[in-house]
Design a protein around this nucleic acid. Structure first.
Lengths: 208, 208
DNA sequence: AAAGCGTTCAAGCATCTGATTGACTAACCG
DNA sequence: CGGTTAGTCAATCAGATGCTTGAACGCTTT
């Protein structure tokens, strides 16, 4: 049996390239999407040999799937946490701010957080392999939103409120993916919130 | 000099394959995006030889560019026409209905109209070559929307209203591209309008 | 009939794709 | 020291990619 406590220098360097590969995959996936990631470009960006991908992940697709799944999980955690700090009797504006907070933070922070956000957005268009397991979690988030929405937007059927939630999520994804996202990156979190919350809350509530 | 009135059967069959290639490109571009279109798949779908693309369009990219430009122009015409029937003192709901009408019609009609719509949506994420010429027309459409919006949503800066317009456009593009679009296709124009207009109008107006 | 022309076609090209192989290094262990 | 193992690497593979070529086809014109 292995003794993982002992620092085996060989395994340590292996883990390092493994991480570099995963990070490079994250960046490339965010920029070009799953079909746009090539083995050479990935390994060049990671400073690794082509065969390192097969060695550490089995295949390029397996690496991409793992990176995408990590990104989705990471985003779901952030959004669930933001929503869970919300009481069931919050205002629609507070709901909008919470719902958008992971995206706003990603835009303001940039770097790998933004890459994660863009991967999430792309996954909304092209559902990756093994989507079923994560779809349930997305449904859960939408259910959390619905709870607050039902108390604040009366006279609208649940099904329609759920549709509005998906519309809002799609709008946020779009802002991250489209060229306008580059313009938004130069703004602070406060500015982004002031800009986005009225639109999102308005979409949730329906026409004034 | 040629006499174009005379039906030269050779040129006629040539035009047919040219059209078939363009239509096949439209369908494939809508489904897979520009990078997902391969020469063999395209020519197989069109029932043509690979070299037909080079002969008629110069290159695969040129064919895709032409098809995308056609789609964008077609969509801009439809949207501009819908907006021009709007008086400058219309309600936000009427503006929302007009703004979304090309998309709603495409969803209800399906077929090539929907393909055009999806190509437009993809172009919003990955601007195609020669985008500059068309960007001005999109700015024009947004200016039309702004005119109506300024009269109905007081106390909000033009810059912010323009941002909301881009948010709404992005949301619509998303709905067409994401898997939820398949669900929407089973609905009638009336149903789609009833579902979409409140969300769009709400996003335009801001939080209730 | 014969030459001209627009179009189509199978075959082939260079390049890039993801993946595999076997040799090689270096760290670990007895 | 010798044997084992984890990891890296250059070389190579088969397949797919976009594109070109030269020949052939069939209609049009003279």
């Amino acid at each position: 049996m292995d003794s993982p406590d002992v620092t085996d220098q060989r395994r340590e360097t292996g883990l390092r390239t493994r991480t570099r590969l995963r990070d490079a995959a994250l960046d490339l996936l965010a920029e070009r999407g799953e079909d746009g990631v090539t083995l050479r470009e990935l390994t060049d960006a990671a400073g690794a040999n082509v065969s390192a991908v097969s060695y550490h992940f089995g295949s390029l697709k397996a690496l991409c799937d793992a990176a995408i799944e990590d990104a989705l999980e990471h985003y779901l955690d952030a959004q669930h946490e933001a929503l869970s700090e919300l009481g069931p009797e919050s205002t629609v504006e507070a709901l909008a701010a919470a719902f958008a907070s992971p995206m706003i933070r990603a835009l303001a922070t940039g770097g790998r957080d933004l890459a994660v956000m863009r991967i999430v957005a792309r996954a909304g268009i092209d559902p990756p392999g093994g989507w079923d397991r994560l779809a349930a979690r997305f449904d859960g988030v939408r259910a959390d939103v619905l709870t607050v929405l039902k108390a604040n937007v009366p006279g609208v059927k649940d099904q329609e409120l759920l549709f509005r939630t998906r519309c809002v999520a799609g709008m946020m994804n779009w802002l991250v993916l489209a060229p306008i996202g580059s313009e938004l990156r130069s703004k602070s979190e406060k500015q982004l919130e002031r800009l986005l919350v009225p639109v999102i809350a308005g979409a949730f509530s329906g026409a004034s």
